[in-house]
Design a protein around this nucleic acid. Structure first.
Lengths: 239, 239
DNA sequence: CGGGAGGTTGATGGCCGTCAACAAGCGTGG
DNA sequence: CCACGCTTGTTGACGGCCATCAACCTCCCG
């Protein structure tokens, strides 16, 4: 019974995240489970949403990593933010919305439609909280790019990803599956691949992190966060 | 009659902006005018909202410039985005919100409380559109910091400010009142004051802009935007 | 008159971009 | 089976953009 419960949580990181944002009622859970049974897969490197096109539906990421991106004329790519299981795409509230950036699948991404918020007030609250989180992550990204050095940008970004993965139960003891390439890290941090490589090497040599076989481990997250002056993301008062 | 109308618009840039986002109904206008009569002033360099504190009310900027900021332990300041007349502060939808950054008055700022969105569906829509704009500006800021050179960052930022001031009727023919110091520009662009000064000088010598007596003029906005590969912010389909 | 805020300019140095080369792994197809 | 190309990671040499340090100016205001 207990084991079954744990397994259910482990296999639905998206639900874990939404429940962590705000406890859901049965109507919300039912609607979510129903949509999750009609999940689809977007293959790696393909686009889930294109900049400048109308947003016609809200989507929920169930598995895999995506990113909000903008492509420059010279071919440079900027990653605005990462989208992890439990994150929403097209989570707007105004009418006739148009996407202000593209959303690209960084791995194969399993996703489903997100139920309409009017079905449940707790679901609407979860969507609102998710929007607030997303804004906080955008602000963190601005602070990284504006004021941190290359090494700090990488460490800070990895700590954010750890924090977010913990929220949906995909990280434990600072360790998590890490599907990003150094190229993607460069696109996110505004650095070049070469320099990302050097700085990652430095973090490894300093024993701040280990990274092998697609798994990344931050040795001492609390200590690293302290060194960076980084505090956990908080969007609401603790009830 | 015409003159009176123009003057009314000119003295209420905040209303001009909100109406530009979405046409308001009479209930919304009445509520706004009523609150605007109870306007207050926050003196320059003072804080309108502090990072980490609960957000208890939504505010509307009527006059002056503010900025969303984050202060680092070493005393460095990062400006996340600028807040102009018609922009909202604390425009959240989730419960028990906590501010994820501070809001600082860059000039003396006249502001009022923003009426509750439930008073009018058009007002709620305006708030939602305003949120979408703010997100678009955050993304633009990330792209600037991540991928542009110092000169490009400044030019792109000034073009964004021009676009936004046009939205509330505070700019005309590329010219507008500009209260920012080079120090503030440095805090926004992630550069040092010294380098901002050099790059502004360069833009001046290239005749891209003129700046004197607190007025800034971008000589040829369309041409400059083209050079940067910059396109106007668009958050909704044109009805 | 003194002091502070804001702007301007020059000299020097370091972080990070650029260019280049190579290794390892992997899927494809001859 | 191996050749081949492609992706990803890695390392070295060199250079440029921008930070840093410093000095000086104007303006404003008490």
């Amino acid at each position: 019974m207990m084991a079954a419960h744990l397994q259910a949580v482990a296999t639905a990181p998206a639900l874990t995240r939404l429940e962590a944002l705000t406890p859901l009622d049965e109507a919300a859970r039912l609607a979510l489970r129903s949509e999750m049974q009609r999940a689809r897969v977007m293959k790696r490197n393909h686009s889930l949403l294109s900049e400048g096109t109308p947003i016609t539906r809200r989507m929920l990421i169930l598995e895999g990593w995506a990113a909000r991106t903008r492509m420059f004329e010279d071919g440079q790519l900027q990653i605005m933010s990462f989208l992890l299981p439990g994150d929403l795409i097209g989570n707007c509230t105004h009418s006739n919305p148009v996407s202000v950036c593209s959303v690209t699948a960084l791995t194969d991404v399993r996703y489903c439609l997100a139920p309409a918020p009017r079905l449940s007030s707790t679901l609407a609250e979860a969507y609102a909280a998710s929007r607030a989180c997303e804004e906080a992550y955008l602000l963190a990204q601005i602070a990284r790019l504006g004021r941190l050095t290359a090494e700090e940008r990488l460490a800070d970004l990895l700590l954010e990803l750890l924090e977010r993965l913990e929220l949906c139960g995909l990280a434990n003891g600072g360790k998590f599956a890490f599907p990003l390439t150094q190229n993607m890290l460069a696109d996110a941090t505004g650095l070049t691949v070469v320099h990302v490589n050097r700085m990652i090497g430095q973090l490894r040599r300093q024993d701040d992190l280990s990274w092998c076989d697609g798994a990344l481990c931050i040795k001492n997250p609390a200590e690293l966060a302290r060194k960076l002056g980084r505090s956990p993301t908080q969007i609401a008062e603790r009830g």
